[in-house]
Protein backbone atom coordinates (compact mmCIF):
# COMPACT_ATOMS: atom_id res chain seq x y z
CA UNK A 1 0.00 0.00 0.00
CA UNK A 2 1.54 3.34 -0.95
CA UNK A 3 1.00 6.89 0.20
CA UNK A 4 -1.28 7.72 -2.70
CA UNK A 5 -3.67 4.91 -1.81
CA UNK A 6 -3.65 6.07 1.82
CA UNK A 7 -4.58 9.56 0.65
CA UNK A 8 -7.42 8.09 -1.44
CA UNK A 9 -8.75 6.24 1.61
CA UNK A 10 -8.64 9.42 3.66
CA UNK A 11 -10.31 11.49 0.96
CA UNK A 12 -13.06 8.91 0.53
CA UNK A 13 -13.55 8.01 4.18
CA UNK A 14 -17.03 6.97 5.24
CA UNK A 15 -19.28 9.56 6.86
CA UNK A 16 -22.60 9.67 8.67
CA UNK A 17 -25.64 11.10 6.88
CA UNK A 18 -27.28 14.33 8.11
CA UNK A 19 -29.41 14.10 11.25
CA UNK A 20 -32.92 12.72 10.78
CA UNK A 21 -32.03 10.83 7.58
CA UNK A 22 -33.61 7.55 8.71
CA UNK A 23 -36.72 9.34 10.01
CA UNK A 24 -37.22 11.06 6.66
CA UNK A 25 -37.11 7.69 4.90
CA UNK A 26 -39.65 6.20 7.29
CA UNK A 27 -41.88 9.25 6.87
CA UNK A 28 -41.71 8.89 3.11
CA UNK A 29 -42.61 5.20 3.33
CA UNK A 30 -45.65 6.03 5.49
CA UNK A 31 -46.65 9.00 3.34
CA UNK A 32 -46.37 7.28 -0.02
CA UNK A 33 -47.88 4.05 1.36
CA UNK A 34 -45.12 1.73 0.17
CA UNK A 35 -45.74 -1.99 0.47
CA UNK A 36 -43.31 -4.84 0.93
CA UNK A 37 -43.58 -7.00 -2.17
CA UNK A 38 -43.53 -10.79 -1.92
CA UNK A 39 -40.31 -12.40 -3.13
CA UNK A 40 -40.45 -13.91 -6.59
CA UNK A 41 -40.15 -17.71 -6.64
CA UNK A 42 -36.76 -18.77 -7.98
CA UNK A 43 -36.92 -19.70 -11.65
CA UNK A 44 -36.15 -23.31 -12.36
CA UNK A 45 -33.36 -24.07 -14.78
CA UNK A 46 -35.69 -25.37 -17.52
CA UNK A 47 -37.79 -22.21 -17.30
CA UNK A 48 -35.03 -20.09 -18.78
CA UNK A 49 -33.23 -22.81 -20.68
CA UNK A 50 -36.24 -24.13 -22.57
CA UNK A 51 -36.93 -21.01 -24.67
CA UNK A 52 -33.23 -20.73 -25.50
CA UNK A 53 -32.94 -24.40 -26.54
CA UNK A 54 -36.19 -24.18 -28.49
CA UNK A 55 -35.05 -21.07 -30.35
CA UNK A 56 -31.67 -22.64 -31.17
CA UNK A 57 -33.30 -25.85 -32.44
CA UNK A 58 -35.77 -23.87 -34.55
CA UNK A 59 -32.96 -21.79 -36.03
CA UNK A 60 -30.93 -24.92 -36.84
CA UNK A 61 -33.93 -26.62 -38.45
CA UNK A 62 -34.68 -23.54 -40.52
CA UNK A 63 -31.04 -23.33 -41.63
CA UNK A 64 -30.96 -27.00 -42.66
CA UNK A 65 -34.25 -26.73 -44.57
CA UNK A 66 -33.22 -23.54 -46.32
CA UNK A 67 -29.83 -25.01 -47.28
CA UNK A 68 -31.47 -28.18 -48.61
CA UNK A 69 -33.99 -26.24 -50.70
CA UNK A 70 -31.26 -24.02 -52.13
CA UNK A 71 -29.06 -27.03 -52.88
CA UNK A 72 -31.89 -28.90 -54.62
CA UNK A 73 -32.70 -25.84 -56.74
CA UNK A 74 -29.06 -25.36 -57.67
CA UNK A 75 -28.73 -29.00 -58.65
CA UNK A 76 -31.84 -28.79 -60.74
CA UNK A 77 -30.62 -25.61 -62.46
CA UNK A 78 -27.21 -27.09 -63.12
CA UNK A 79 -28.63 -30.29 -64.56
CA UNK A 80 -30.94 -28.34 -66.81
CA UNK A 81 -28.03 -26.20 -67.96
CA UNK A 82 -25.95 -29.28 -68.58
CA UNK A 83 -28.71 -30.92 -70.56
CA UNK A 84 -29.16 -27.78 -72.57
CA UNK A 85 -25.43 -27.51 -73.21
CA UNK A 86 -25.15 -31.08 -74.37
CA UNK A 87 -28.12 -30.81 -76.65
CA UNK A 88 -26.74 -27.55 -78.04
CA UNK A 89 -23.25 -28.98 -78.51
CA UNK A 90 -24.72 -31.96 -80.35
CA UNK A 91 -26.51 -29.68 -82.74
CA UNK A 92 -24.20 -26.72 -83.29
CA UNK A 93 -21.33 -26.16 -85.68
CA UNK A 94 -18.59 -27.12 -83.28
CA UNK A 95 -19.49 -30.70 -83.84
CA UNK A 96 -20.05 -30.93 -87.55
CA UNK A 97 -19.70 -34.68 -87.66
CA UNK A 98 -22.30 -35.23 -85.03
CA UNK A 99 -25.78 -35.60 -86.21
CA UNK A 100 -28.58 -35.17 -83.82
CA UNK A 101 -30.07 -38.61 -83.57
CA UNK A 102 -33.66 -39.08 -84.28
CA UNK A 103 -34.34 -40.69 -81.00
CA UNK A 104 -38.06 -40.75 -81.54
CA UNK A 105 -37.46 -43.72 -83.79
CA UNK A 106 -34.10 -44.94 -82.51
CA UNK A 107 -35.25 -45.28 -78.97
CA UNK A 108 -38.02 -47.55 -80.06
CA UNK A 109 -35.53 -49.91 -81.72
CA UNK A 110 -32.94 -49.98 -78.98
CA UNK A 111 -33.98 -49.90 -75.38
CA UNK A 112 -32.43 -47.01 -73.53
CA UNK A 113 -29.83 -47.64 -70.92
CA UNK A 114 -29.86 -45.10 -68.18
CA UNK A 115 -26.76 -44.47 -66.17
CA UNK A 116 -27.09 -42.14 -63.26
CA UNK A 117 -24.16 -39.92 -62.52
CA UNK A 118 -24.67 -40.94 -58.93
CA UNK A 119 -24.41 -44.65 -59.74
CA UNK A 120 -21.63 -46.63 -58.03
CA UNK A 121 -19.43 -47.26 -61.13
CA UNK A 122 -19.42 -43.59 -62.08
CA UNK A 123 -18.86 -42.62 -58.49
CA UNK A 124 -15.88 -44.94 -58.30
CA UNK A 125 -14.31 -43.21 -61.27
CA UNK A 126 -15.01 -39.84 -59.75
CA UNK A 127 -13.55 -40.96 -56.46
CA UNK A 128 -10.40 -42.22 -58.15
CA UNK A 129 -10.10 -38.80 -59.83
CA UNK A 130 -10.84 -37.09 -56.53
CA UNK A 131 -13.78 -35.09 -57.80
CA UNK A 132 -17.20 -34.79 -56.22
CA UNK A 133 -19.21 -33.95 -59.32
CA UNK A 134 -18.85 -33.72 -63.09
CA UNK A 135 -18.92 -30.19 -64.44
CA UNK A 136 -20.64 -29.03 -67.58
CA UNK A 137 -17.57 -28.83 -69.78
CA UNK A 138 -16.68 -32.44 -69.00
CA UNK A 139 -20.14 -33.54 -69.96
CA UNK A 140 -19.75 -31.56 -73.18
CA UNK A 141 -16.50 -33.40 -73.90
CA UNK A 142 -18.25 -36.58 -73.09
CA UNK A 143 -20.83 -35.73 -75.73
CA UNK A 144 -18.07 -34.98 -78.24
CA UNK A 145 -16.17 -38.17 -77.52
CA UNK A 146 -19.16 -40.40 -77.80
CA UNK A 147 -21.89 -38.55 -79.62
CA UNK A 148 -23.81 -41.63 -80.48
CA UNK A 149 -23.99 -42.67 -76.90
CA UNK A 150 -25.54 -39.55 -75.62
CA UNK A 151 -29.05 -38.76 -76.48
CA UNK A 152 -29.89 -36.43 -73.71
CA UNK A 153 -28.63 -35.51 -70.32
CA UNK A 154 -31.48 -34.61 -68.12
CA UNK A 155 -32.19 -34.75 -64.43
CA UNK A 156 -28.70 -35.95 -63.71
CA UNK A 157 -29.07 -38.98 -65.97
CA UNK A 158 -27.39 -39.90 -69.21
CA UNK A 159 -29.40 -41.94 -71.61
CA UNK A 160 -27.56 -44.25 -73.99
CA UNK A 161 -28.52 -46.20 -76.96
CA UNK A 162 -26.02 -48.91 -76.13
CA UNK A 163 -27.19 -51.50 -73.74
CA UNK A 164 -23.85 -51.92 -72.12
CA UNK A 165 -23.18 -49.58 -69.26
CA UNK A 166 -19.48 -50.38 -69.52
CA UNK A 167 -19.38 -48.37 -72.72
CA UNK A 168 -20.50 -45.26 -70.93
CA UNK A 169 -17.96 -45.79 -68.18
CA UNK A 170 -15.25 -46.26 -70.82
CA UNK A 171 -16.21 -42.94 -72.32
CA UNK A 172 -15.91 -41.35 -68.93
CA UNK A 173 -12.38 -42.69 -68.81
CA UNK A 174 -11.71 -41.02 -72.15
CA UNK A 175 -12.56 -37.68 -70.70
CA UNK A 176 -11.00 -38.46 -67.35
CA UNK A 177 -8.00 -36.26 -68.16
CA UNK A 178 -10.37 -33.38 -67.99
CA UNK A 179 -11.49 -34.51 -64.57
CA UNK A 180 -7.95 -34.23 -63.26
CA UNK A 181 -7.88 -30.52 -64.00
CA UNK A 182 -11.08 -29.79 -62.21
CA UNK A 183 -10.81 -28.09 -58.88
CA UNK A 184 -14.09 -26.29 -58.52
CA UNK A 185 -17.30 -28.03 -59.30
CA UNK A 186 -20.76 -26.63 -59.67
Amino acid sequence: MNRFEDELRIALRSEEPPAGFADRILERIAKENFQVSAPLPPRRVWQWRFPMVFATAAACLFFILATTVIWIRQQSNNTNQTAQTIVESNSNDILPTVETPDFTTEVKDKPKEIVRLSSPPVKRIMKSKKVSSIPQRTLRKFAVAKPDAVILAKNNELEMRERNKKDLIAVLFVVSDELKKIKVEF
Partner: peptide, 27 residues
Protein backbone atom coordinates in the same frame (compact mmCIF):
# COMPACT_ATOMS: atom_id res chain seq x y z
CA UNK B 1 -39.29 -9.04 10.78
CA UNK B 2 -38.70 -6.25 8.24
CA UNK B 3 -39.86 -8.60 5.49
CA UNK B 4 -43.25 -8.84 7.21
CA UNK B 5 -43.60 -5.05 7.04
CA UNK B 6 -42.36 -4.30 10.58
CA UNK B 7 -41.33 -0.62 10.44
CA UNK B 8 -39.24 -0.76 13.62
CA UNK B 9 -37.15 -3.59 12.21
CA UNK B 10 -36.75 -1.74 8.94
CA UNK B 11 -35.71 1.43 10.81
CA UNK B 12 -33.01 -0.63 12.57
CA UNK B 13 -31.68 -1.79 9.21
CA UNK B 14 -31.69 1.76 7.84
CA UNK B 15 -29.75 3.11 10.85
CA UNK B 16 -27.27 0.26 10.66
CA UNK B 17 -26.46 0.74 6.97
CA UNK B 18 -27.25 4.40 6.29
CA UNK B 19 -23.58 5.45 6.48
CA UNK B 20 -22.62 2.99 3.74
CA UNK B 21 -25.25 4.25 1.30
CA UNK B 22 -24.85 7.91 2.21
CA UNK B 23 -21.04 7.84 1.97
CA UNK B 24 -21.01 6.29 -1.48
CA UNK B 25 -23.68 8.67 -2.78
CA UNK B 26 -22.14 11.77 -1.21
CA UNK B 27 -18.55 11.04 -2.23
Amino acid sequence: QAATGDMDAFAQLVRRHQAVVWSIAHR
